[in-house]
Design a protein around this nucleic acid. Sequence first.
RNA 1: GCCCGAGUGGCGGAACUGGUAUACGCGCACGACUUAAAAUCGUGUCUCGUAAGGGAUGUGGGUUCGAUUCCCACCUCGGGCACCA
Length: 857
Amino acid sequence: MKNYDHIKIEKKWQKYWDANKTYNTEAISKKKKYYVLDMFPYPSGAGLHVGHPRGYIGSDVYARMKRMQGYNVLHPMGYDAFGLPAEQYAIEHKIHPRKAVDINVKTFERQLSVIGLSYDWSRKVNTTDPAYYKWTQWIFLKIYNSWYDRKSDKARPITELIKLFGKSGNKNIDAVCDLNYTQTFSYKEWNTFTEVEKQGILMKYRLAYEGYALVNWCPKLGTVLANDEIVEDKDGKAISERGGYPVEKLSMRQWFMRITAYADRLLTDSEGLNWSTHIKEIQKNWIGKSEGSEIEFKTSINRNIKVFTTRVDTLFGVTYVVISPEYENISEFLVRSKNMADVSVYIREAKERSKKDNLDQKEKTGIELKGITATNPANGEEVPVWVADYVLAGYGTGAVMAVPAHDERDYEFAKKYNLPIKEVIIEQVNSRHDDGILHDSGKFDGLDSKEARTKITKEVDGKFITKYKMRDAIFARQRYWGEPIPLKRDKKTGIITTLKDKELPLKLPNVTSYEPTGTGESPLAGVNAWVKAGYETNTMPGWAGSSWYFLRYMDPKNEKEFASKKALKYWDNVDMYVGGQEHATGHLLYSRFWHKFLYDMGFVPTKEPFKTLKNQGLIIASDGRKMSKRWGNVINPDDTVKTYGADTLRVYEMFMGPFDQAVSWNTDSIIGSRRFLDKIWRLSLRLNKKSSSKDIENILHKTIKKITLDIESMNFNTAISSMMILVNEMEKDKIVSEKDFKMFLQILAPFAPHITEEIWEQLIRIDNYESKNKKQFTSIHLSIWPKWNEKKVIDDMVKIVVQVNGKVRTEIMISNDANEEDVKDLSMKDKDIIPWIKDKEIKRVIYVKGRIVNIVI
RNA sequence: GCCCGAGUGGCGGAACUGGUAUACGCGCACGACUUAAAAUCGUGUCUCGUAAGGGAUGUGGGUUCGAUUCCCACCUCGGGCACCA
């Protein structure tokens, strides 16, 4: 073949790899394993743009090197096809979601296949496949039938909790349960409870539980919307992104996952993960741990108010106490206030407001509960009690002590309503969180904030507690296209029973209309047989199937277990996970949660699912915006592949900038990557039989070293740039041996798998033609990754830069083993240096081995 | 507002642990080959200066023989959280 015909070559080898199962993962073996995983996509209808494959190409390069390094590599791909995108596509095109998914998967697979990714397609999973979601349902039931034991700090089967109830009631059980659940009972009572009562109590402890939650309800669309489906109109009101209709808050029955039970472990264990600090930081903020004190204020109506504060050192600065309009016992305060009528109007209005405006930061409002005072436990001072909407009911105790002098929000409120401001801390200039020294605080005067917190909490009989911002996760969608929740409810008694293992999967029934019902109920509520049988009409959310798929790849066809113990032990966990950072507080947190649960129950051997995580950056369109149909700036990879070839696309996408950074697509620049491959093609036609010149050997081994290290750390852009340098040198130097060129092809192979395979084959064919010992063809991708020779990496002569007072004046060549004195001597005698140092006193001469001499005068 | 991350030629970007700033690629200019063009190859390409030399890594300061790299303050952009007490 004379010219580099990418179309012919790429087709030929894709066919070959497919037929020969070149990339199929070996069975569990003695070989060391390596698990390289991409986040599996939603096969939406829009198809791919050039931004999508960037992550896949990066992980593919990585997987290919690991394979050549002799690892048994697991590098699979699959589809996360339940959820909104698939459902919306189906509704828009008026076809069944099942069909829509199949069509979209096909498009997706065709687009992926031309890029030359080395997936083992025999391990493909699809979350909508009943053989798959059978196990999603199975895991759900395990979670449903578990509770969280704080003492052993892990999940345990609910049957064990029932046993404990039978022994002592729930008084001495330290379990994670619903926030406001305080009722206690003894074992005698447990036995006397009815089934319904027992179910109600257990529901407070289950890790998957039923409850009510405020959701974003759009009456016009007749559906519940996720937060990111809501935008703000010009008056700051919440409207739906699709259609622009008003959105309000509505309380609806939901299933929840008690992820808050794992808050501390999710936080602590993330420290040991090899993830970007950025993602870890996002998760940390999301979990939002804060340590503080819970203290009680007595009030004039004989009802105590508990408050949570991280700044108990400011207790002497409290000038009023605030409770939320949705405070649990607010009615008791209301009826005893002297301005009851006004207060009740305020509370009603505040509740209305909180339902409507969920986006804009509203101005703080409030009203005093006249005639009611609270007593500061530190100094016995009587302070007024207010109701105000800036206090959240759902966090802490729903009440706060207000310290206007040291809290911005309290300050703003106090200013507005003319409440007193009392300063008790002198802030230290260099400290964060405006810690400082106490004054006007009685016997605590002069203490610093930190010390004071411990002492004051003890003094007022407070408790040290830890709070988290993170909420339990809603685990239900009022939609059709999701995994059915495998529970049955008796119509008359309301008793919920779980489906037995052998009854799984509970298959999604066919419906005539899968569009939202408009009543807020799932379309499943319209299926008579379904409702009659007592099945749950909500389905699971999109994140259910994606929270464990990485385990299924280990043993994708197992019908008896979600994966065999043996497979789980061998594949252990994901070594390299590649995907977008937009999943930081979603998928990446939920997967860790489920994985920890499975670990507690002894189903998986590791505490964390993803050892190393890399996030590929976005590809921005040349107009500076995200690529989107909406802007009409989408570049289709198919076109690029056709014009320049898949190898060019791969090289360009890896070369255009750092892998984890957003870069903009520039169609003009692709040509550089194509030229690089063209040069290689031409070089391959004029190789030397014997050996390369010494320079070439030296730079080749340097390059092998650099590429190996660069791929390992995913610095693909610099890897390619150093291969370009090597190729430029080869072109100049002309004498390149076949043997050396083959080594170069091997390190290029992960980036450009087709062209390297083609040249590799041609070289073997020529060899065979000329020699008697015919070689059998083995793919370059199964060849052994070249090792660099450290001796050949070292230069005999090194360049030393000579500076005078830090300014470069000349450079000299020295042998690499020259000693310090000789180098210094040589530098000072250099003809370019003498004029600078003549007649000057030399104060110091600094030498950095192999790099620089700096003469200070 | 709070918490992260980033700022380097016309453009994408490189620079090991503090040691030649601008590698590699695109673009541009000139030259070679060609009847011509494309392709290819070669040379040049931060800035002021004829040169010697000087100045530049968002801005201002500091540490150092030496700072894109470390420290302080500020500006701009991107991301996350958003009344979490």
